[in-house]
């Protein structure tokens, strides 16, 4: 012991100040980047749209661009189709993703691994490639049409260039993240608690409704928040697969900015889109905060 104490002297004091400074330094860079690349553009866009440059070159408070957006039928139709697409996609993602996640969570064996690989695969396909693949599949004279024709069946109306085109593409594109997040949520439900429910007489459906879903509220909320945030601001898939009119907010903003050369209205559309996303973002933040509190 004497030898130990001579070679390894006890620590005189904990590095209280040094530790705090290192901690602050570690978070400083991401916080600064967050402020520069996210917070500043948001605030700048809000200020720009509420204090636009007038004809005389001076800035003044005006809500004219917002008034225009909410009185313009075309803008409102675009907002409606965006909200409709977001809601339908969110619903379809849960309806499609939840059974896959349930299967992956409670199944063992090789087949489950193949299903998992298949469910995750769209994550590695760029949106633009997916868009053209879908055109070749469900578009006019695409694979579906060719197969129906070969079977002597009548042609089906194609969803390409209708609001259902982006829905199909966005569900395909967002499915991997949805499945991953739902599977992670299901991972918190132990096998024993499911088995205990079956032991007292609950069938599979009852187990889902009474035991699994009530304990998945948080992860469903987080999953939906993520999906909604991504879908609301989607650009490529609605641009390539969607109708020209009405169009989703992403393509609408791009066209207002580039084709119409109208940055003020494009910014207004962006701020309004941000407002809607913010609601879902707050759901997400609240859910995370609740989770942390319950873990304490």
């Amino acid at each position: 012991m004497a030898m130990l104490s001579s070679t390894l002297p006890a620590r005189a004091r904990a590095p209280a100040y040094g530790g705090a400074i290192i901690g602050l330094a570690l978070v400083a860079m991401p916080v600064l980047l967050l402020g520069w690349l996210i917070l500043y553009p948001i605030l700048a866009a809000i200020v720009e749209t509420m204090f636009p440059v007038g004809a005389d070159g001076a800035r003044g408070f005006s809500l004219a661009s917002y008034r225009f957006f909410f009185s313009d039928d075309y803008s409102l139709a675009n907002l409606r189709v965006t909200l409709w697409t977001t809601c339908v996609c969110g619903l379809l993602l849960v309806l499609v993703g939840l059974p896959i996640a349930l299967y992956l969570r409670f199944s063992r064996g090789r087949f489950a691994s193949y299903v998992q690989a298949l469910a995750i695969f769209p994550m590695f396909v760029p949106s633009i490639i997916l868009s053209y693949a879908l055109i070749r599949t469900i578009g006019p004279n695409g694979t579906v049409d060719l197969v129906l024709n070969a079977l002597g069946l009548p042609k089906l109306p194609t969803p390409y260039l209708t609001p259902w085109g982006p829905v199909i593409g966005l569900v395909w594109d967002n499915l991997p993240l949805t499945v991953l997040m739902l599977t992670a949520g299901l991972g918190q439900i132990s096998n024993a608690s499911v088995e205990a429910a079956r032991d007292v007489g609950a069938g599979p459906l009852r187990v889902l409704v009474s035991i699994i879903l009530p304990r998945m509220g948080n992860s469903l909320l987080v999953t939906l928040s993520f999906a909604v945030l991504g879908i609301f601001s989607a650009f490529t898939l609605p641009y390539v697969l969607g109708p020209a009119s009405p169009e989703m907010m992403g393509p609408f903003m791009e066209r207002t900015f580039s084709d119409n050369n109208d940055p003020l209205n494009a910014l207004t559309q962006a701020v309004i889109s941000f407002g809607f996303c913010l609601v879902f973002g707050l759901f997400y933040v609240r859910s995370i905060a609740r989770n942390r509190e319950s873990r304490r």
Partner: peptide
């Protein structure tokens, strides 16, 4: 299936809901 058996099981991990 377990739900149709006249057995009752107590698990190691309590497995309470």
């Amino acid at each position: 299936p377990p739900e149709r058996r006249p057995t009752g099981m107590v698990f190691q991990s309590h497995a309470l809901w």
